[in-house]
């Protein structure tokens, strides 16, 4: 009865619209900074929020665990909802035929921070231990700032810094002379 109840509970919770092997995905992967955000610094955060709890975490919550602490206290102290995802894969192709990053995911992890990406369009998706997709696929567009703007800012900063150093040095010396 419990699995049937949990299945109904999961389905009534409203899951992601994307399909994973013909069924609705149990996890909803999303870009933390906004759905259509263009990534200008090669760094982005992905998350799969806790409201999409999986069968595993709900079963554990109902049955209690072996730690001896009451589940209510543990829930207040710990952030430990579990899920089935074991890997996050990133590819430059929507079919994931050529995976550039395959990152191990802990079963309580709910977000990830990724960095150092060059210009391009990337796709990210969560997979379980059997290499089956368990989340929707997210499209990420990395487009770094134009080098013209970058040099403008860099040279402005360097010039202002040199002026400040020059001024400070001149006044420190003058102050010594006065003393």
């Amino acid at each position: 009865m419990v699995p049937v109840f949990l299945l109904l509970l999961t389905l009534s919770g409203g899951v992601a619209g994307s399909l994973c092997n013909g069924q609705q995905c149990s996890l909803h992967l999303q870009l933390k900074d906004g759905k259509d955000e263009v990534i200008t610094a090669g760094h982005f955060n992905l998350e799969w929020p806790t409201e999409k709890e999986t069968h595993a975490s709900k079963q554990q919550a109902l049955e209690g665990d072996s730690g001896g602490e009451s589940s209510a206290i543990k829930e207040a102290l710990l952030d430990n909802d579990q899920h089935y995802a074991t890997r996050l894969k990133i590819s430059s192709e929507s079919t994931f035929s050529n995976v550039s990053h395959s990152i191990k995911i802990h079963n309580t992890q709910r977000a990830i921070s990724l960095t150092g990406f060059s210009d391009g369009v990337y796709y990210a998706r969560l997979f379980d231990a059997n290499d089956q997709a368990v989340s929707n696929s997210v499209e990420l567009t990395v487009n770094h700032h134009s080098m013209f703007n970058v040099w403008l800012v860099f040279i402005s900063g360097a010039t202002l810094f040199l002026i400040l150093i020059g001024y400070m040095m001149a006044n420190v010396f003058r102050h010594k002379e006065e003393a």
Binding site: T40, A41, G42, S100, H101, T115, G116, F117, S118, H144, H145, S146, M147, V150, W151, V153, F154, S156, G157, A158, L160, F161
Partner: peptide
């Protein structure tokens, strides 16, 4: 895997240099 981290012409990082000073 993360080529921009070692790139001395990493755009956002170049802007950051004097900003942080």
């Amino acid at each position: 895997h993360h080529p921009e981290l070692l790139n001395l012409l990493f755009p956002a990082a170049m802007m950051f240099l004097f900003n942080n000073i």
